[in-house]
Design a protein around this nucleic acid. Structure first.
Lengths: 219, 219
DNA sequence: GTCTATACGGGGATAGAC
DNA sequence: GTCTATCCCCGTATAGAC
């Protein structure tokens, strides 16, 4: 309700940026108001307090992530193609919008995600579940090795992309750049590497690499 | 100097726990003092201000991590054994001491690691460099595939372990437990999986499967 | 809906006694 | 070295005018 309000979404946007950059405790209501170009008392009109403003930001974010993630996982293609597509989307989201992943990350770190239990359960029941099903399908079709726990495999694949953005400042220095992180081209190169690395680990073991694609019809 | 002082280390220990759990902004001097069982003014005697107290905590932590990491990487053995040993240590450190990884993680997230630039450069020049050399050695010896950037491979391997602990609350829910994270046995199982997954990706045959798939035929 | 003005508390930091 | 007492700022939140 009242979604048309410009001030309301301005506040949400400003809050998202600040919470992502400085965390809950490090962000002040007055600063958000200044960013949004409104008076600080207005924040209490739209959202009851700082806590609920944070919740509203988090809600909006997780819902968008789940929506895009599930849609990508349900795209047509082989399990390998769908997994690659999902990892690609992950890179787009985490790398593209500067306030997306940092906010999720903070929520995980700040209070052991206590404020996001419901949202995480949603992710578990939709996106994560779907991702595991893709791995399982690949296993049934013989493209992926069958001796892996699909949930562990899913976590490993996602981790290689996620942690790159988590540790972005450190990785920037590791690779000879700055704490701003590596330049875009290096990020892209890493993301390609990570997808290949994941598929290599998942692919059926060396014995019969060429025969792995039994039912595969090269399209 | 003055390392014998009990109050000083008590303060450092208490500060480490609080900073790890609640972050810099979320932690108060008075609370740290209460945890350490000393008066809050004493913190200003040993450390000039909150900022320097935080720095001291971070210093102590990174130095211990580097020391243990490098020692493990320089242990005798094949590249595979040394990589496995390093990932095992990573799991021990991150999983074992509850304030170790959360503090590093916060530093990465909080201000793009601005407070830890020097420490990260130390890690880059010692531990990370050493880890890359292990991968390179494996490549020269033919145990690991040669078509990977050793730095990217190193990052991928570490990521699979690190992100598991980063996202611990979420992964706990994903696997049907709580935001406290999965039980110890599941953590151990995942760590074994991650090491195997990493080695599988590194050992995968060079070109045959990946290229064959493109053409859809492997003679 | 949006603003001004303000209360109320809490946090960092200091002076100085012991 | 350790504590008591205190200052001062700033952040959240509310009351109420427009």
């Amino acid at each position: 309700m009242a979604t048309g309000s410009s001030a309301r979404t301005d506040i949400l946007d400003a809050a998202q940026a600040r919470f992502a950059r400085q965390g809950f405790d490090g962000t002040t209501i007055k600063l958000i108001a200044a960013d949004a170009g409104v008076n600080s008392a207005l924040l209490y009109y739209y959202f009851r307090d700082k806590e609920r403003l944070y919740q509203a930001v988090l809600d909006r974010l997780v819902q968008e992530m789940v929506r895009r993630g599930v849609r990508r996982l349900e795209a047509p293609g082989t399990p390998e193609e769908r997994l690659r597509g999902f990892l690609e989307l992950q890179g787009e989201i985490f790398g593209g919008h500067p306030h997306f992943y940092p906010l999720l990350l903070r929520e995980l770190v700040d209070h052991a995600a206590a404020r996001a239990v419901e949202q995480i359960k949603l992710v578990a029941a939709t996106m994560f579940r779907r991702l595991c099903e893709v791995v399982e399908q690949g296993q049934r079709e013989g493209a992926f090795r069958g001796d892996l726990d699909p949930r562990f495999a899913a976590i490993s694949c996602v981790s290689m992309v996620a942690h790159f953005f988590t540790a972005r400042p450190a990785i920037g220095l590791f690779l000879g750049h700055s704490t701003q992180g590596p330049p875009r081209a290096v990020v892209q190169a890493y993301l390609r590497h990570a997808a290949d690395f994941a598929i290599a680990a998942l692919s059926a073991p060396n014995l019969a690499p060429a025969r792995a694609r039994l039912k595969g019809s090269a399209r």
